[in-house]
Amino acid sequence: MQITTPKRNASNRIVPLTDGVIEAFLKLKELQENDKIRNKEWSSKNEIITEYPGLVLTTKKGNCFLTSYVEQECKRLVDKINSKKERSAKEEHIVYEPLKIHPHMFRHTFVTNCYQQKMDTRVLIDIVGHSNPQMTNHYTHPETEFMHREFKKYEDLL
């Protein structure tokens, strides 16, 4: 594990945070401080935490929080949801499509939500760190309801 500079210059950017995200990070920091108090060995063997003591995403033992943990949590939640859907589908004798979620989908959701809220495209491109507007378009998946509302604007003009 290592902390390095981003692979592309476009990755160096300002990423605004919502109040809710800031609150979540402050809560994580509070939990981390409690972990430090409870575990005297917290991060004692972790060179990265020693070098970067301000990291907030850590485990209860003071190790770095790995991206694989997010993937595992997505899988755990999806398995739980799918098993409930499967039981319900069997009871109702219907076929269901299993839910599939991976962490990168959250980036697609963020871009789509910003697009549907009419965020300025130039600002959105800068926030997500794309050097090419076509890449931002690739991440945008308008919902059916949104498309109907947008089309209604055209229809109202007629």
Rank of each mutant, 00 (worst) to 15 (best):
T144H: 01
E143K: 13
C114I: 00
A89S: 12
V111W: 02
L157N: 06
R8I: 07
I22K: 10
T5F: 06
A24Y: 10
K45N: 14
M135I: 15
P142I: 02
T18R: 07
F110L: 14
S68D: 11
Q117H: 02
P142C: 02
F106P: 08
T136C: 06
Y139M: 02
K90W: 04
V128R: 02
L28D: 00
T18M: 08
H93T: 09
K60P: 13
G62E: 01
F110C: 04
E30D: 14
K100H: 08
E23Q: 07
Y69R: 15
K36W: 04
L124N: 03
K153C: 00
Y96I: 11
L57H: 12
E51W: 02
G20T: 05
V123C: 11
V111A: 14
I14E: 15
K85V: 07
V111F: 00
S83M: 13
D79A: 12
K84G: 01
L124A: 15
S88A: 14
H104S: 01
K84F: 05
F106R: 05
R76H: 13
T140V: 08
D126A: 09
R122F: 13
S43N: 10
P6I: 05
R8H: 08
T109H: 02
E155F: 11
I127V: 15
S44F: 12
K40T: 05
K118V: 00
G62Q: 06
E143L: 12
K100N: 04
I101H: 03
D126S: 15
M1N: 13
V78M: 14
K100V: 12
D19E: 12
